[in-house]
Amino acid sequence: GPMASDKRPRTAFTAEQLQRLKAEFQTNRYLTEQRRQSLAQELGLNESQIKIWFQNKRAK
C-alpha cells in the first residue's frame, strides 16, 4: 500500500542471525546498550536493526 515507504528497507536477517536474536530474546527481553553493541558486532548488524527487531518481537 501507499503506507509502505521505500525509505527503510526491511532487513533480511539470516537464519543464523535470527537464531541468535531469538536466543538472546529468551534470556533478555530488553537489551542494554552494551549487549546491543556486542550483538551488532558479533552478527555484523546495525544496532538500530537489532533494537527494532527487539521492539517488534516484544510488540507481538
Rank of each mutant, 00 (worst) to 15 (best):
P2S: 15
M3F: 03
M3E: 15
A4P: 15
A4Q: 15
S5W: 00
D6W: 00
D6C: 12
D6A: 06
D6N: 05
K7S: 13
K7W: 09
K7R: 07
R8K: 15
P9W: 05
P9H: 06
P9G: 06
A12Q: 12
A12I: 11
F13R: 01
T14M: 02
T14K: 04
E16L: 13
Q17C: 03
L18M: 07
L18K: 07
L18V: 08
L18A: 05
Q19N: 11
Q19Y: 07
Q19H: 08
R20V: 07
R20H: 04
R20P: 00
L21G: 00
L21Y: 00
L21C: 02
A23S: 09
A23K: 10
A23V: 09
A23M: 09
F25S: 02
F25Y: 08
F25A: 02
Q26C: 10
Q26G: 06
Q26V: 08
Q26S: 09
T27A: 10
T27H: 10
T27N: 12
N28I: 03
N28D: 08
R29I: 06
R29Y: 04
R29N: 14
R29K: 09
Y30I: 08
L31M: 06
T32G: 07
T32K: 04
E33L: 14
E33K: 14
E33P: 15
E33S: 13
Q34C: 07
R35S: 05
R35P: 02
R35M: 10
R35T: 06
R36W: 06
R36C: 09
Q37Y: 11
Q37W: 08
Q37A: 13
Q37N: 07
Q37F: 11
S38I: 12
L39N: 00
L39H: 00
E42S: 05
E42P: 00
L43Q: 01
G44S: 07
G44T: 04
G44M: 06
L45P: 00
L45K: 02
L45N: 00
N46M: 08
N46L: 10
N46T: 10
N46V: 07
E47S: 07
E47D: 05
S48P: 04
S48Q: 13
S48N: 08
Q49H: 07
Q49G: 03
Q49T: 12
I50S: 01
I50H: 00
I50A: 00
I50T: 01
K51C: 12
K51P: 01
K51Q: 13
K51F: 13
I52P: 01
I52L: 10
I52T: 11
W53G: 00
W53Y: 07
W53M: 02
F54G: 01
Q55D: 07
Q55H: 11
N56M: 14
N56L: 13
K57Q: 13
R58N: 08
R58H: 06
A59E: 07
K60D: 07
K60G: 08
